[in-house]
Simulated scan of single mutants.
Amino acid sequence: MESITKNRQSLDTLRAMVSRAYGPDEVIPDGEDWVSELGHGWFNVAYRIRLRSGRESVLKIAPPPGVEVMTYEQGAMGIELASLRMIEEQTDVPVPHVDYADQSHELCDADYFFMPYIDGDNLGIVEATLEPAERVAYNESLGALNRKLNSVVGPWFGRLAGPPDPTWRTAFRRMIDDVLSDGERRSVDLGVSYDLVRELIAEAEPSLDAVTEPRFIEWDLWTSNVMIRDGEIVCIIDHERACYGDPLMEAGFTALDLPVFGDPAPFMRGYGWGPLTENEVTRRRLYSLYLILIMIIETDYRGHTDTVQYDWARERMAELLALFGRSR
């Protein structure tokens, strides 16, 4: 996926980064067949690197400082590094170990880190080739792992990097207001007025008061961030959008509102979440609204050269309006 947020570096800079992380003995001095870009990411650039010893690693680089990102994406790599440490220390969910992280901006103009290359298939890429029973099994496993992630209790509500909020209602309102402000700043057409969206939020947000304990929320745990091998999930990647909030916000529940995301039943079985209460239905719709707003607005910030995602997300916005009992 192409995006102006991808901060590509020269071979000389990449060699210097490898040397700093692993030592000069691991650097491949000549040619360029030791490095290749992993192209399916949406935000950061990532390189697959073969070290002199033969082992492989992945280098992930944050966007360049001159590219404006959405408010919730600011400091995203720091959030990912904090998330990886927390998950590794407090759960047994398989995530990449951070080999080396550099936030000095001495070798390149952004944060970066190295992690081992995961030998496996990306579930989001191969799932269409799997048997239905295999897809069900993986999604049940994903639900169970997601519950383990949500078992981590946070110190506040909101983004891992702060600012801290005392209630989930306050935190979520700040998060969704930031997204709306991002859209207004770029005059992004939502297909519906910003005032109407704010009305929907104000009417539904009292439901958020039912959430009283801040839990670690991965939020971006789609199948495209799941690595599999030999019938098992071997790693979960991409943790830069994590926050402390309501587990019902997790991606696996999105299909409860928007059927285009597939069947949520296997994920919910694996997670152990039963039928939603009236309060949970309202909260879940707010979270789907938050997601679709981002999917519409980010197309402008990422410099998309076509309207495929924008048009698709606008259709989902129309579906959500109907769920809220409104029209354009």
Rank of each mutant, 00 (worst) to 15 (best):
S193D: 11
K148S: 03
R135Q: 15
D121G: 06
I125D: 04
T170M: 06
A128D: 15
A161W: 03
S151V: 08
D121E: 14
G191C: 06
R169E: 01
G154L: 11
V136A: 09
L200M: 14
A171I: 06
L145V: 06
G120A: 06
P155Q: 10
A133C: 02
F114C: 08
N150R: 08
E134W: 01
A137C: 02
P206N: 04
F172I: 00
D121N: 13
M115C: 12
G124S: 03
R186Q: 15
E131S: 08
E184K: 11
P206K: 02
V179Y: 04
V126W: 06
L130S: 00
R173G: 06
R159Y: 12
T129S: 15
A128G: 07
I176V: 15
R147K: 15
A171F: 05
L180S: 03
D119N: 12
W156P: 01
L200S: 06
D121H: 11
R174W: 09
E205T: 10
L130F: 02
I176Q: 04
V188Y: 12
T167Y: 02
E203V: 14
P206V: 02
R185M: 12
R198C: 08
Y112P: 10
R198Y: 05
S193Q: 09
D165N: 12
N139E: 13
S187H: 13
M115L: 07
L123Y: 10
T170A: 15
I201F: 13
A204T: 07
Y112F: 15
V192Q: 02
